[in-house]
Nucleic acid binder design. Structure first.
Lengths: 231, 231
DNA sequence: TCATAAGATGACTTTGAGTTATTTTCCGAA
DNA sequence: TTCGGAAAATAACTCAAAGTCATCTTATGA
C-alpha cells in the first residue's frame, strides 16, 4: 500500500508550487508589497491552504531564500572540486558568485533583505538554523580552498581560512548590494571594475609576498585573466 | 515680533523629542515591533501629532538613521583632518568606524536594516537623497585619505580612491553585521581578530609593494600598532 | 456504501499604519 | 478684555493585510 508515499509526494509538490508562486511574486513586487493572498491566488489556492504548508509569510520567504542558496551551493562546489590551480580557483569561485548575484538581481535583493532584516527575528528557530547551516557550508567550502592555498604557499600562513572566506563573502555581497539596489553612489557600468578591484585587493592582501616554494607558475599563469562575471 | 521665530524653535524641539522617543524604541524593540502609537505614547503625544511632523513611519525611521550618520561623520572628519601619517590615519579611521558600530549595536542594527531594505523604497525621494548625500560625504572623506596615500607612494597608483573607500566600508559593515546580529557563524569573542584581519587584508592589498619614494618611515612606524576598537 | 481523516476553504479576528473631523491653544487686533 | 482665526493637537475612524478557525469537500480503506 504505497498510498501514503504518494500522498507525501503530492504534498511536497504542492509545497513546491506555493514556493514557486511566492518566488515569482517576491522577485517581481518585492517582499513587502506581496500579500499572502497574492501568493495564494498565484498558486490557485486559498490563503488558508498556504498556511497549511508554511507557518508564516516570513517562513515562506525564508524558504524561498534557502532554495536559491542551495542552487548556488551546487555551482560553487563544482568549481571547488575541480582541479584548477588554487589561485585560479579562487578567482573562478568569486567570479561565479558575483555572476550569480548579478544575473539574478531580484533574487539577490531578497537574500539581502533577509540577511539584514527584521524578518530573521520572527522566524522559527528551526528554519533559521537551516539557513545558517547552509551559509556555513558555503563558507567552509571557501575556507577549504584557502587552506589549500596556504598549504601550497600561495596564501599567507597567518591567514585564518574561515575568516578569509567570511571577509571575501561579505565584501562582495556588500558591494553588489550597493550596485544592484542602485543608489546613486555607484554607476551601473562601473560594476565590473569595482568587483574586479575588490577581488584584486583581496587576492593581493591574502597572497604571500615572495611567492616562495617554487609554486609561482600558478601565480603568473592566472595573472590578468578576467574572471567571467556577466554585466 | 519674534513670535514666529520662537514658534519655529518650538516646532523643531518637538520634532527632536519625537525623534528621541523613536530612536529609543527602535533600538529597544526593533523597527517592526515598534508601532507609531508606541512612539506617540513615549513622546507623550497622540499618533496624529506624530504624523504632523513626519510623513510616515519610514520617514521617521530614516531620520533616526540620518541623525546617527551625522554624529559618525563628525568623529571621522576629525581624524581625517588630523596630521597623522597616512597609514596610521587609515587605521585610525577604520578603527573608529568599527568602534562606533560595536559600541552602538542597536543603532548599527537600525542602519543596516535601512541599508538592506524594503524601507528605502517607500521613502520620499527628498529624504532618500539626503541620506545618500551623507553617505557620499563619508566616502569622499575616505577617498581623500586614500588619494593622499597614493600621492605619498604608500598606496598603489592603480587604486581608485573612491572605490577603495567603498570596498573598505562595505567590508567592515558586512562583517560587523554578521557579528552583531549574532548568527552562530562568528563567535562574539572573535570580533576583534576578525576585524583586525579584515583591515590588515585591506591594507596589504592596497599598499605598494616596494614602498618606494623614500617614504618608508610612515610604514614601519605604524606597523603593529593596534587601533583602538573597544570590544 | 459509509465512516473517517486529510485537505481545502473563505469568512472572521486582530493589529497597526495612515486620515480626518473636531477640539484646544495661542496670538494679535479691536 | 475679548474675540476671530490660525496653528497645533487629538482620538475616533478607515483600510489593508497577516493569521485563525469553523465548516465543507474529497479521497481512502473497510
Amino acid at each position: 500500500m504505497s498510498t501514503a508515499a504518494r500522498r507525501e509526494r503530492e504534498r511536497q509538490r504542492r509545497r513546491q508550487e506555493i514556493l514557486e508562486a511566492a518566488r515569482g511574486l517576491f522577485c517581481d513586487k518585492g517582499y513587502a508589497s506581496t500579500t499572502v493572498d497574492d501568493i495564494a491566488a498565484a498558486a490557485e489556492l486559498s490563503k488558508g491552504t498556504v498556511y497549511l504548508y508554511f507557518r508564516s509569510k516570513d517562513e515562506l520567504y525564508a524558504s524561498v531564500v534557502l532554495e536559491g542558496f542551495k542552487k548556488l551551493e551546487v555551482r560553487l562546489r563544482e568549481l571547488a572540486d575541480s582541479d584548477m590551480p588554487v589561485q585560479g580557483k579562487v578567482d573562478a569561485i568569486l567570479g561565479a558568485f558575483v555572476d550569480h548575484c548579478v544575473s539574478n538581481p531580484d533574487y539577490f535583493r531578497l537574500t539581502q533583505l533577509f540577511a539584514g532584516g527584521s524578518v530573521r527575528d520572527n522566524l522559527p528557530k528551526e528554519v533559521r538554523d537551516d539557513i545558517e547551516a547552509h551559509a556555513r557550508d558555503l563558507l567552509l567550502l571557501g575556507a577549504g580552498v584557502v587552506e589549500r592555498g596556504i598549504e601550497e604557499g600561495v596564501f599567507r600562513r597567518d591567514l585564518d581560512p574561515f575568516m578569509a572566506s567570511l571577509i571575501a563573502w561579505r565584501t562582495l555581497t556588500g558591494l553588489l548590494d550597493l550596485v544592484i539596489f542602485g543608489g546613486q553612489l555607484v554607476r551601473r557600468k562601473d560594476t565590473q571594475r569595482l568587483m574586479r578591484q575588490a577581488m584584486d585587493l583581496f587576492m593581493r592582501g591574502a597572497m604571500n609576498r615572495g611567492v616562495p616554494r617554487g609554486e609561482r607558475e600558478a601565480l603568473s599563469r592566472e595573472r590578468g585573466k578576467s574572471p567571467k562575471a556577466g554585466d
